[in-house]
Amino acid sequence: MPASVFQQTLQGPAIFAGVGVHTGAYTRVSVRPAPVNSGIVFVRTDVLDRDNRVPVSGDAVTKTQLGTVIENAAGVSVSTIEHLMAALVMLNIDNATVELDGPEMPIMDGSSLPFVQVLDRAGRRGQDAPRRYIEILDVIEYVDGDKRATLSPSDRFEVAFEIAFASTAIGRQRVDLAMDEQAFRRELADCRTFGFLHEVEYLRSIGLARGGSMENAVVIEGDRILNPEGLRRPDEFVRHKALDAIGDLYVLGAPILGRFEGVLAGHGVNNMLVRALMANPQAWRYRTLVQDLAEAV
């Protein structure tokens, strides 16, 4: 059973900066406290001629090719939000305003760990409103060929993921974890994004991956890992996919009480699962643990 009964925000601003993995643009970010029930809202401070607030929601996701992109009705977008979103949900931060002066979140070291560290420094404070969980009541699945993502009932948040690559540097990997704040810190937060050298070279040729480097990704060529320091964990690849999925699910606006399973899935399949859940209101309900405590007394 999750321990967090009431909503939380930050005690003060969490400030950091870095380059975007695709734009290569240097962006400054300030994650600030926000009132109860406001959720996570991104604000593009560099946009002054139209609505620059981009609230997070499943419907706001417009692109998923190389990361999760959200956009508002005015066409203002923020890309590569998933690593910060994973840190926010697993640190039990319900309400925050994320101000940034560019179109893409900094990639930092390619994991959620730098975000966890800056959020820790800012501190958290409780708020006088119950946290709402999304309790999964029935199985929801999205299948695209050999790719699959599923949400099913569980009394806790669980994440399972499986990947398979021809490269022997990766091969077939699977992880299956009961997930709370401490498990996220211990098992997933430091696991970095990854890519193949030929893909990076192609992306650069079409104007993407301008900020990508071995400082912020694990790079593979054939069956070799090119990073001099090697891997942080033997199965860092699948663990990063699990991290991505956690961030992609938090566009729903509340933490999940349920089990997520991904097989060969990515941001696109994750978001299609989110949309399938939203389209099936009988498969889930909002639940607060305040109700559980009241019934237990």
Rank of each mutant, 00 (worst) to 15 (best):
G20K: 06
F16D: 06
V69F: 08
I136P: 01
L208P: 13
V175D: 10
M90K: 00
R156H: 09
S38D: 13
H22I: 13
V218F: 01
Y142N: 00
P255T: 12
A17F: 00
V200M: 06
E236Q: 15
R285Q: 12
D144A: 12
Q117L: 14
G212R: 02
L119V: 00
A149G: 06
G20Q: 01
A164K: 14
V251K: 05
D46L: 07
D180Q: 04
V29N: 10
E181L: 03
D101N: 13
D51E: 08
A34Q: 12
Q7T: 00
G266D: 09
G230K: 07
R148S: 14
M108C: 04
S167T: 04
G222V: 03
A209V: 06
P255I: 02
E236I: 11
I206C: 11
E135H: 11
S213Q: 00
P234N: 13
N271Q: 14
F237Y: 10
A74G: 02
P281Y: 12
V76M: 01
I163W: 03
R131P: 07
V274E: 02
N95C: 07
H267P: 01
A276E: 01
R239K: 13
I246W: 10
A34T: 12
L188S: 01
V251P: 06
A122L: 03
A294P: 00
D51G: 09
H240L: 01
D176N: 15
N37Q: 11
T80R: 03
L289G: 04
D138A: 13
L273T: 05
S79I: 13
V218Y: 07
V54K: 01
P228E: 12
P228Y: 07
V175K: 11
D176T: 14
M1A: 13
D176I: 04
R28N: 03
D51W: 05
G207R: 12
T23Q: 06
D190F: 07
D144S: 13
I220W: 00
L231H: 02
N92G: 14
V89S: 05
T288S: 13
G222S: 04
R53P: 04
V29D: 08
D120P: 02
V29T: 14
G230Y: 10
E162V: 11
Q65K: 15
L100R: 03
G230L: 07
A129M: 09
V69S: 08
Y142R: 02
S79L: 10
N271G: 04
